[in-house]
Nucleic acid binder design. Structure first.
Lengths: 345, 345
DNA sequence: GTGAAAGCGCTAACAC
DNA sequence: GTGTTAGCGCTTTCAC
């Protein structure tokens, strides 16, 4: 393992000059630059990043917190974030909190110990009061989450509107008994969607029935379960908002086993617009989230914060959601003329 | 940001003693230990990891190379690897090579610059000759890949056997014209499976028809395409080995649009046993890979290599694959009595 | 048991 | 344009 000193010696120059060449600083003559490059080549020299990090107080690494990778929504987020990081010569450390507040706090030490330059929270389990103190060590950016108490950049989607358009669509299809599923973990996403769902119901003169609310539901298996709960009810919903394509797929898959006709016996709407929506029969009506754009923006903002040192300002970047109508809510797959407004702000 | 020096001063002790306390070294009196802990607490002190890394020449971080996160197989691998890393107080950096040999080489510099202690290759695009030199900088472990030229630990699954049992199953169901799909990227996985497929065909007195081999096929959309290719053929295969549940799902989904009866008109077998296999109708027959066990073993071996400094020894850890029979290959979903051997080594 | 001091490899004042 | 030098914050001999 050769060091900058070795290179300097071999080139007959000082460490400073070598360092200047490495970091592309001006004021180095072409001759010496060449000399340095030759020496580096010959020694197979590469700067040691721990030493560099220690000196410049930057690691060029950011951490992203998610509950778990296997959730397709978060896989997609990680995929895009990694590419956005790579484009800026940054590394991405993945931290799975597994919905544990304690694990989250533990991972936040990465910021405190300066192992990462910043943290992107794509989920958070702790109250903001507990997270806030870490801001003294580096920037924290919310991505896909919103927290009113947080004075940091927040890049997210208008989930209230998402819940609203999804529910409004179900109502327009003639449903008046509408079920509702939610992940149940502490998250602004679920809360916001529920708000939108309620608003749509209210505008239609319907009410949110707690008996039709299924909580702690977030994967295929849970979806199957939900179907059985519905099946066992005396009064059943005729449509259900699931908040996730996987839950929707689970419900539909199980319903078909019992020869229910989707959407006639039960209309089902997903969320995320994952690949599975076009595999399940009927295809799943869903709400598309611009994950790629959101992730790209989050990394852009993070990069900027790292270099600006101003971490404690609230900045809002809101991305739009879009309803995608498919067969799981309408018998005829054609999108109808809709009266749903473009925004409900 | 307080340093070890600040703690030492506040406690009225030397840096050495503080360091000993931090690292749980022996020979520190209980009194001083308490003093140090109090000082650390009071200052909110946490050791700086760059400084520590520079000094001990370890970062407690490993990188994992995958083509991309969105592939469910790799999502699962990342998920498990991250947990295995966290259990050992290691961080995981995700590197998406996107099937690019150049990107892969670039990411390998993480090892050279000592930004990571080791690299887990879950895919590799470059010839081993090009990767091998990086071994002088730290351990490299193959996970899910096998390379005969590589003298490093390899944790993988018997893909030859996987291709074999899948194909043998199709043959047992009475198919004699069997199609074959492969991802097509430089990978031992595809090559091994093809070998297994060919061996099964040979044993059954059938031959591998190149016209039924679809290459560069690895997602749902490709699956749909494959269906159309098959549909356009004069002589069509009656069954197809896909090498991926997503491709299988794509084929089945598209076939159903054209009212083909799966498995009667076309039997389809997937690979990986992802959640989608139980959502698609009929459910997809597939080959289960013990990803969790494999990932856990890979991290265990990596951890050991990092601490042993012996990187250049070939070690083989092979995990078994298992056929899971569902409706996409047999009209009757019950698993039949099979004559497929437990191993073909 | 404890402390002084060297040094991991690098960058950036500052001097020339 | 180039070199000297002082640390970044930590661990670890070595001496006491």
């Amino acid at each position: 393992m050769s060091t900058i000193e070795d290179v300097a010696k071999l080139a007959g120059l000082s460490r400073t000059t070598v360092s200047r060449v490495i970091n592309n600083h001006p004021y180095v003559s072409a001759t010496k630059k060449k000399l340095v490059h030759e020496a580096m080549e010959q020694l197979g020299y590469v700067p040691n990043s721990s030493a560099r990090s220690l000196r410049i107080q930057k690691t060029e690494t950011v951490a992203v917190f998610i509950p778990r990778v296997m959730n397709p929504f978060f896989s997609q987020l990680i995929e895009t974030l990694e590419m956005a990081a790579a484009a800026r010569n940054y590394q991405l450390i993945v931290c799975q909190t597994q919905y544990s507040a304690k694990k989250e706090l533990n991972y936040l030490n990465l910021l405190k110990t300066k192992q990462v330059d910043g943290v992107i929270l794509a989920s958070h389990e702790n109250d903001w009061e507990l997270i806030e103190p870490y801001l003294q060590y580096g920037p924290i950016v919310l991505c896909n989450e919103f927290d009113n108490k947080a004075n940091v950049p927040m890049i997210y989607q208008d989930q209230v509107y998402g819940g609203y358009i999804a529910t409004m669509h179900l109502i327009e299809q003639g449903n008046s008994l509408i079920g509702y599923c939610t992940g149940g973990h502490y998250s602004s996403v679920g809360t916001a969607r529920e708000k939108g769902v309620k608003q749509a119901l209210k505008e239609a003169g319907l009410c949110f029935e707690e008996k039709f609310a299924f909580r702690n539901v977030y994967n295929i298996e849970h979806g199957r379960q939900v179907f059985h709960w519905i099946k066992g009810m005396n009064e059943r919903p005729t449509a259900i908002f699931t908040g996730s394509d996987e839950v929707a797929a689970g419900i539909i898959s199980e319903a078909k086993k019992y020869r229910w006709n989707i959407p006639v016996d039960l209309a089902v709407i997903g969320f995320d617009n994952q690949a599975i929506t076009e595999i399940v029969e009927p295809n799943i009506t869903t709400v598309h989230q611009p994950v790629t754009e959101m992730a790209e923006k989050a990394m852009e903002v993070m990069y900027e914060k790292i270099n600006s040192k101003d971490y404690k300002t609230k900045e809002i970047y809101q991305f739009p959601l879009k309803l995608i109508v498919r067969g799981s809510t309408v018998s005829n797959n054609l999108e109808k003329c809709s009266s749903i407004p473009k925004s409900i702000s």
